[in-house]
Computed example of a mutant assay.
Amino acid sequence: MRPSRGTAALLIGACAVGGLAGCTRDSVEPTPAPTVSSSPTATPSPTPTPTTPPEAIAPERPAAMDEISVAGAEAAATYFMQLYPYAYATGDLTEWRNLSDPECVFCNSVVLNVEEQVAAGHSSTGSRMDVHEVFAWEISVGRYGATVNATEGPSMELDASGELVSQRLTPETNELTYALAHDGTAWRVLEVGVEPAS
């Protein structure tokens, strides 16, 4: 091992104090170099960090949902649609339930499907939603209609061992028609109809 700069300075200082005779070859016994026995250790390969798919990241709640207005209805409809792939990818139905009216048939069917998927140990990937157009209108005080034109990306369902259960290879563009209400505290999705976009 190469001595450090500090070690070398101490050795020089010792020779200066003891005189040159004290640092001659005859008076210094050679110190054998230490034997270091070590077996070569393999450098572990870095473990790749798994990438979280986009659909497994909770969508951000739009600030416009705080409004009881057409803009608020549009934001609520879009946000609800973005929660769809997230619920399937994660099994997390918290926000989906918060926005769903208890009588909403479409909303309840998604809850049932996700719960069955989780119980079976299955998982889903894909179903990314790309919004092309959203339009809302006021029906009466606190009640709104909205349409969302969006394309749902390809998706796969896998079992607990990672084997393919089902898949949809082609994107689907649909028009979703919403009935929404705001009760003064929060938005509720009353019903959703889904039709292939013309």
Rank of each mutant, 00 (worst) to 15 (best):
I139M: 11
S155P: 00
D26E: 13
S27E: 08
S45L: 11
V194C: 07
E29S: 15
V70L: 08
R188E: 05
P40R: 15
S37D: 09
T51I: 12
G6T: 11
A58H: 05
T51L: 06
R61F: 00
M129Y: 00
S38V: 14
W137Q: 07
F106Q: 06
A146C: 04
Y86K: 05
E138W: 01
H122F: 09
T24D: 11
M129F: 01
V189N: 01
L83A: 03
E195S: 15
L83M: 04
T125N: 05
N108I: 01
S109D: 10
G121T: 13
V165K: 05
V118E: 09
F106P: 00
P40E: 14
T90N: 06
S109E: 06
E60M: 11
A73L: 04
A197K: 12
E74Q: 15
T177A: 15
E74N: 08
E95R: 14
E195F: 09
A42E: 13
A89G: 07
M1H: 07
A14R: 10
H132R: 13
V36S: 05
D101F: 01
S140Q: 11
T151P: 02
D183R: 02
P34F: 06
R143F: 05
D159N: 15
R188S: 12
T24Y: 01
P154W: 10
E138N: 08
G126D: 03
A120N: 11
V131S: 06
T41L: 09
T51K: 12
V105H: 09
C107F: 02
V28I: 14
S39Q: 10
P85G: 13
L169G: 05
T35H: 10
L83G: 01
V114N: 10
P3Q: 14
Y84W: 13
V114H: 09
R5S: 05
A33F: 01
E175G: 06
A146S: 11
S123Q: 12
T43F: 02
P62F: 02
Q117D: 07
G162Q: 08
R128V: 04
T31W: 06
A14T: 11
L20S: 11
G184E: 03
E103Q: 15
D130I: 10
A63F: 01
D92F: 07
A89C: 06
P62E: 08
R5F: 00
T31C: 04
L112S: 14
E152R: 15
L20R: 12
T94S: 12
L190Q: 12
A63Y: 01
E191N: 15
N98H: 08
M156Y: 05
V141S: 13
R5T: 04
P34D: 10
G121V: 07
G6Q: 10
N174L: 12
H182A: 06
T24C: 09
T185I: 10
E95Y: 02
A186S: 15
P44M: 10
